[in-house]
Design a protein around this nucleic acid. Structure first.
Lengths: 146, 146
DNA sequence: AACTTATTGAAAATGAATTTCAATTTCCTT
DNA sequence: AAGGAAATTGAAATTCATTTTCAATAAGTT
């Protein structure tokens, strides 16, 4: 179970050592900031957060660190309907499914074991083996429905 | 039941008249070519098909006609993992679900009533009302699994 | 400390999507 | 059928996120 940020950062450090990447102040700051926020964040948004306190860190480094986090398995990239790439910290209980409100833009994650099972069943009917999946609902959330 | 291309084209004509759009030779050619191919096509791909026989039709017009078809409800835009916008003719039995092969790139559509029902059920648990949904499986198809 | 290699960040490049604009075409009115 | 307002066209330019380049800097090894 990887729950703690410090644990994730340790995992990142291990990954970097394995791959011969160097650990730097910038990467440390960016990774911390990213792992702190449990939302779907764009490179742009993370850059703004990071640069608030660290004006010397450039957008490119944030972008590259997000790629690094993805490669190390600590983040996943997702593209929603607005064409922007968002990054999300990976948790053990993986959420792949989203309710996206067309009015307020809120993204709610959910997971449903029944859905997962049904997905596997459908895929196997087509002789298809699933590596990953995306399931996004677009509509109106409880508050915006009114 | 809208099955025939001619029926769809009639629908487009009605839509255009309603909206005050003009029907042109270019739009007619592009729409015909689009409705013919029952696949997920990018603006670029459609442009190539169209310009093979009609060298005077530009990319921009193809792009704009696809937007028009989307607005009129005859096409839907979809973005898959490769970040490209693809267009798909809308049929009555709407397919929203895809099996995307990571090796050969083939896109297989499917529909499952059980899945649809489960989706509605899950959404309602969150007080969410669905307008549209995307369900994409990424993995390996029967042929590429080997 | 010296050295090899990776990293940084500004700027440039890329590439798809979108807009601009002058020339052309459509289609409504007479 | 001709005139004229308004939409359309297509090449080129623009936008905007993403990605690459490159010279300067920093990390980590010996």
């Amino acid at each position: 179970m990887i729950k703690e940020i410090s644990e994730k950062k340790a995992r990142l450090k291990t990954f970097m050592k394995q791959k011969g990447f160097k650990s730097t102040r910038q990467r440390d700051i960016i990774a911390s900031e990213f792992l702190k926020c449990e939302e779907h964040i764009t490179a742009e948004e993370l850059y703004k957060k990071v640069s608030r306190r660290n004006k010397d860190i450039g957008y490119t480094t944030v972008y590259r660190t997000l790629k690094l986090l993805s490669e190390s398995g600590l983040a996943t990239e997702r593209i929603f309907a607005d064409q922007l790439t968002r990054y999300e910290p990976v948790s053990d209980d993986e959420h792949h499914d989203h309710l996206i409100c067309l009015k307020c833009g809120s993204i709610t994650e959910f997971e449903d074991p029944k859905l997962e099972r049904l997905q596997e069943k459908i895929a196997s009917e087509f002789g298809f083996s699933i590596v990953d999946h995306k399931m996004d609902f677009y509509g109106y959330c409880r508050d915006c429905k009114k």
